[in-house]
Each structure stands twice: as C-alpha cells, then as structure tokens.
Amino acid sequence: MQALLFEQGVQRIVEDQTGPITYYPDIITPALAKAWFDTLLNHGDWHESSRMMYERLVGVPRLHCHYDIASSALPSVLRDALAVVKQHVDVPFNSIGLNCYRDEHDSVALHNDKLHELVPHRPIVLLSLGATRTMVIQRKKPPRLKTELELEAGSLLLMGWNAQWHYDHGIPKLRCPVGPRISVAFRVRPEKADKTW
C-alpha cells in the first residue's frame, strides 16, 4: 500500500500490529467537499432500511446506498472522489458504500466491518463530507482504550484490515443539533458471481 503523501495535521490513532488507523484532514478543499456533498445528498440513490432488534423491527437510523465501481451507473462525482483517494492510497477499490447521517439523531453503533466481506489485508478508507461528526474508536480487549475523533469535511480516515479484529468504531447520536453528514467508504470486496453486495 502506498503511503499518503503529506503529514501536516495527521493523527495516527493506532500504529502497532493492531492497526493502522490514521486520520488525514483536508485532502480536498472546503469548496470541493461542499460541491461533492451537495451532489451526493441531492442525487444519491438513498435507501432506508430496517432490522430486527429485541424481537421487533426498527428503522436503521441513517440512509445508505452502494455502488459497484465497475458499474456504468457510478456517478461522476464518485469517480472523481475515487481518483483523489487513489492518489493517496494505492489500492484496487471495487466498492463504494455511502451513509447519510441526516441530523443528530442518526447514528451507527460501535461495530467492526465483517471480515468475510473484505479482501484480506486491504484497508477501508472513509471520506467525510458535510457536517463534522464524532467517531468513537474503542479497543475490543482490555484495556478498552477509547478515542473520540472529529471527522471533518474533506478528511480521510484509513483503517487497516487488521484493525477490524481489534477495534470497534461508531458514530453516536448527539444531544445538540447538527447538519447532515455523508460518509463515503471505499472497500475491496471479494469477487462474487452475482456481483450483488
């Protein structure tokens, strides 16, 4: 994996054998981050979903959509975002997943990405657009060290594949009002015959 090309403002959350997890601010300008955010918010193929929790069906507190990078339906804004990300992380991404946190009530609980849905030793890269939200990163085993990281518009978070073994991450609800945020997640998924992820 190619190293990122700049160091100013970089936060290395984890550097040892359980990581890496590294935060890179300002990989794009505020103006470009806003333009991409507006385009995706207004034209993304957003869906609501629900899941069973405590024996009842509940709504997932965020919107989501997914794009296969090889698809002709990939929006041009995501092609542009992929090109920028690949300038910094030289990985053959084939999947882009988006989550839209509409306001302070939307969230995602602490979790790790399912490793069987990822190609081993390929990182996950998150590009943040829109409002700043706090990500909680917590070690699974004692000592359960916890980091709260402010994900700002135009920033990139790199999580190594092995970090999914050792850390959970999530976006908690907030008590104060906040605007919408879009997380653009670049992954390398295993090849599947039906190409449905």
Rank of each mutant, 00 (worst) to 15 (best):
D90S: 12
H43Y: 12
L41M: 01
S72A: 12
L98P: 00
M53T: 10
I21H: 00
G97R: 05
L57M: 08
G97Q: 10
E104Q: 14
E104M: 11
D106P: 01
R12A: 10
P20Q: 08
I28W: 10
S71G: 10
L98T: 01
A81C: 09
R56G: 04
Q11P: 07
Q11Y: 06
R102V: 08
S49A: 11
T18P: 04
S50A: 08
V91W: 03
D80M: 14
R102M: 02
I27R: 05
S72Y: 03
W36L: 08
L74A: 09
T18V: 02
S50M: 08
E48L: 14
S50I: 01
F93K: 06
R62G: 06
Q11W: 15
H43F: 14
M53I: 12
T29I: 09
L82D: 06
L57Y: 03
F37I: 08
A31I: 11
T39A: 06
V84T: 13
E48C: 09
I69C: 09
S76G: 07
H64W: 11
S72C: 04
D16C: 03
I96W: 07
A83R: 13
V60W: 00
E55N: 12
V10E: 05
D90I: 09
T39V: 06
S76R: 14
D68A: 12
S72I: 05
V14R: 01
H66V: 04
V60N: 02
W36P: 04
Q17E: 10
H47F: 09
T22G: 02
S72K: 13
V108F: 11
L110Y: 00
V84L: 11
I27M: 05
L40Y: 02
Y24I: 12
P75Y: 03
V77N: 03
T29K: 05
P20F: 04
S72P: 10
C100N: 01
A33G: 09
L40A: 05
I27T: 00
A31G: 07
V58H: 07
Y24L: 04
Y23R: 14
V60I: 10
I13M: 01
H64L: 08
L41V: 00
Q87K: 15
R51H: 13
Q17P: 02
N94R: 06
L98N: 01
K86S: 12
D16E: 02
H64M: 13
D38A: 05
T29A: 15
D103C: 01
L32S: 05
L74T: 04
D26S: 14
D45G: 03
E15H: 14
N99L: 11
D103L: 02
G44T: 11
P30R: 10
S107H: 08
T39D: 15
E55D: 13
Y24V: 10
H47K: 15
